[in-house]
Amino acid sequence: MGADRARVRGSYDTVAEEYLGRIGDELAHKAVDRALLGVVVEEAAGGVVADLGCGPGHVAGWLTGRGAEVVGVDLSPRMVGLARREQPRAAFRTGDLLALPAADGEFAAAVALYSVIHLEPEELAPAFAEMRRVLRPGGVLLVSFHLGTEVRRMREWWGHPVDVDFHFLESDTVAERLAGAGFTVEVRMERAALPEEAPTRRGYLLARRTA
């Protein structure tokens, strides 16, 4: 694991409990996110959904509550431990977006909500290639991210010392990387921040793995 990935892992290990307390119920006030996740559940048609960058498992918990079988993957062992504790109906694995701990075509669908923002620009393409590898042909992938071109490095997060970069992304850039990895983008959305969120615009792409 490179130094950048180690910084991300260490930072999320540090804030894991605080993150769960502050973010664990965020879907309660995110109607757009719930609607898109509902599309993913329907598209999976009873197959397994991967939650890539699952954090403490709150999205996985929402998905299992709608009847989906879910496997969450996160770089942070502490986050995975919390997810296993909080969401016993889902399965969780420690792993990297650049080398997913999953078999070829294992998943019917996948979500990657605000997880690709911690990748370096040159890592987007290989990460999307990995996501394509673990999806079955025709499987869908929902990606969300903060819109923009800046990079924010956080040294403190909720009073905890961290060292993690947040890469804001443009929808066109993400769509191009997805297309290059073998996806067809079918839905593109943007929205403003909700009062409960950090004040950034949000981007969503729903893409389908080509055969």
Rank of each mutant, 00 (worst) to 15 (best):
residue 84 R to M: 01
residue 110 A to Q: 13
residue 121 P to W: 13
residue 119 L to V: 00
residue 108 A to N: 08
residue 89 R to T: 09
residue 127 A to C: 03
residue 82 L to Q: 07
residue 84 R to A: 09
residue 98 L to D: 02
residue 90 A to C: 00
residue 82 L to V: 15
residue 105 G to F: 10
residue 107 F to M: 10
residue 106 E to G: 07
residue 87 Q to M: 05
residue 99 A to V: 02
residue 89 R to C: 02
residue 103 A to I: 05
residue 114 Y to S: 15
residue 82 L to I: 13
residue 133 R to C: 04
residue 121 P to M: 09
residue 135 L to F: 08
residue 102 A to E: 00
residue 83 A to F: 06
residue 106 E to F: 05
residue 91 A to C: 06
residue 105 G to P: 07
residue 98 L to G: 00
residue 103 A to G: 15
residue 101 P to W: 12
residue 90 A to G: 01
residue 93 R to V: 06
residue 127 A to L: 01
residue 130 E to T: 03
residue 89 R to L: 11
residue 115 S to Y: 11
residue 114 Y to M: 14
residue 105 G to V: 09
residue 102 A to M: 09
residue 104 D to C: 05
residue 123 E to L: 00
residue 110 A to W: 09
residue 92 F to A: 02
residue 137 P to F: 14
residue 91 A to D: 10
residue 100 L to N: 04
residue 99 A to I: 04
residue 111 V to I: 14
residue 94 T to E: 13
residue 131 M to F: 08
residue 137 P to S: 10
residue 100 L to S: 02
residue 135 L to E: 10
residue 84 R to L: 04
residue 106 E to Q: 15
residue 130 E to D: 03
residue 120 E to H: 05
residue 124 L to D: 04
residue 131 M to K: 03
residue 95 G to H: 03
residue 126 P to G: 02
residue 124 L to I: 00
residue 85 R to C: 02
residue 136 R to C: 07
residue 124 L to Y: 08
residue 130 E to L: 00
residue 124 L to R: 11
residue 91 A to F: 03
residue 116 V to K: 11
residue 108 A to R: 10
residue 126 P to M: 03
residue 114 Y to C: 14
residue 106 E to Y: 08
residue 108 A to C: 10
residue 99 A to H: 10
residue 87 Q to E: 12
residue 99 A to E: 11
residue 102 A to H: 05
residue 95 G to D: 03
residue 111 V to R: 12
residue 100 L to T: 02
residue 98 L to I: 05
residue 106 E to I: 06
residue 121 P to T: 05
residue 104 D to F: 08
residue 87 Q to L: 02
residue 82 L to H: 07
residue 130 E to M: 05
residue 138 G to D: 07
residue 97 L to P: 00
residue 107 F to H: 15
residue 94 T to A: 13
residue 133 R to F: 06
residue 121 P to A: 03
residue 86 E to G: 03
residue 104 D to M: 03
residue 106 E to H: 07
residue 112 A to K: 11
residue 108 A to V: 11
residue 111 V to K: 15
residue 135 L to V: 08
residue 113 L to H: 15
residue 106 E to M: 10
residue 119 L to I: 02
residue 119 L to K: 04
residue 138 G to H: 08
residue 138 G to S: 06
residue 86 E to F: 10
residue 88 P to W: 07
residue 95 G to F: 01
residue 110 A to I: 11
residue 121 P to E: 04
residue 136 R to G: 12
residue 107 F to Q: 05
residue 121 P to N: 07
residue 132 R to K: 11
residue 118 H to G: 09
residue 102 A to D: 03
residue 137 P to V: 08
residue 82 L to T: 11
residue 134 V to C: 06
residue 96 D to L: 07
residue 92 F to E: 00
residue 109 A to S: 14
residue 101 P to H: 12
residue 119 L to A: 02
residue 108 A to Y: 05
residue 112 A to M: 14
residue 126 P to Q: 03
residue 95 G to T: 05
residue 93 R to L: 15
residue 123 E to N: 04
residue 108 A to L: 07
residue 90 A to F: 01
residue 106 E to S: 14
residue 94 T to V: 15
residue 122 E to K: 05
residue 86 E to Q: 06
residue 118 H to V: 06
residue 85 R to D: 10
residue 137 P to T: 10
residue 111 V to P: 15
residue 132 R to C: 03
residue 117 I to K: 11
residue 134 V to A: 06
residue 127 A to Q: 01
residue 133 R to P: 09
residue 99 A to N: 06
residue 95 G to Y: 00
residue 125 A to L: 13
